[in-house]
Computed example of a mutant assay.
Amino acid sequence: MQAIYKDFLIRDWSQSDRNLVAAVIGSVLAEYSLDWEPLGADRDVLEVENYYLATGGEFWVVESQGQVVGTAGYYPFHRGETAVEIRKMYLLSQARKLGLGRFLLQELEKAIAAKGFQQIWIETASVLVEAIKLYESSGYQPATGVETARCDRIYVKNL
């Protein structure tokens, strides 16, 4: 993956991004008073190769002027043969309110559809108000079955 949105570069994750990506996600979580869970909900960030790349998913990094300012990824998961979960879609505050989140979500949906997946799930927390507005305005429907402790909402969209 490589895409440009305004002054942002969206590209595939590389091993040298591991600590930078963890710092960005930890920072956004802290901003919303959510805990960084390296042995739990955030283990996938430290093991991108196993969770995303080895399973047929993708993990992307968003850069602005050479600095990592965001992340987004997805991988297949157990809710069906053709289902994926979008995970770790986080942007630092300076990268928000510019349409980047919507662009990222649309690019994820295109990549997911191109691989033949038919259903997308997203777990989130009520405090992530901007994310919830984005998902709901993009056709995601509330569902049940939240599995991540810090999340209290789950959405699904059929492609």
Rank of each mutant, 00 (worst) to 15 (best):
L98N: 01
S27I: 01
D44V: 07
A72F: 06
A114M: 06
P76F: 05
A114L: 10
A131N: 11
W36K: 07
A83P: 02
Q118K: 15
H78L: 08
E136D: 11
F103V: 02
K157T: 01
Q94I: 14
E130V: 08
T144Q: 12
K157M: 09
Y140C: 03
E58K: 14
K133W: 13
E147R: 13
R150D: 10
G66V: 14
L128Q: 12
W121G: 00
I86H: 06
Y135M: 10
A23F: 06
G26D: 02
Q94N: 14
A114W: 00
A131E: 12
I154A: 03
P76Y: 03
V68K: 14
S93C: 11
V61P: 11
Q106L: 13
Q106Y: 05
A83I: 00
A23Q: 13
Y52W: 05
F103W: 04
L100R: 02
P142R: 13
K157H: 08
C151L: 06
V48R: 04
A72C: 15
F59E: 02
Y52Q: 08
G80C: 07
E123G: 12
I132W: 02
T124L: 13
L105R: 03
E109V: 04
A41Q: 15
Q141D: 05
V48C: 10
H78M: 06
I122Y: 02
E31P: 05
H78C: 04
A54L: 12
E37Q: 15
G57F: 03
C151K: 05
R43M: 12
D35T: 15
W36T: 04
L29P: 09
L134V: 08
A143V: 01
Q94T: 15
I122A: 12
R153H: 15
F59Q: 01
G139N: 04
V45M: 09
S27H: 11
E63M: 15
K88E: 02
S137C: 07
R79D: 03
W121I: 00
E109Y: 03
G56M: 08
R43Q: 12
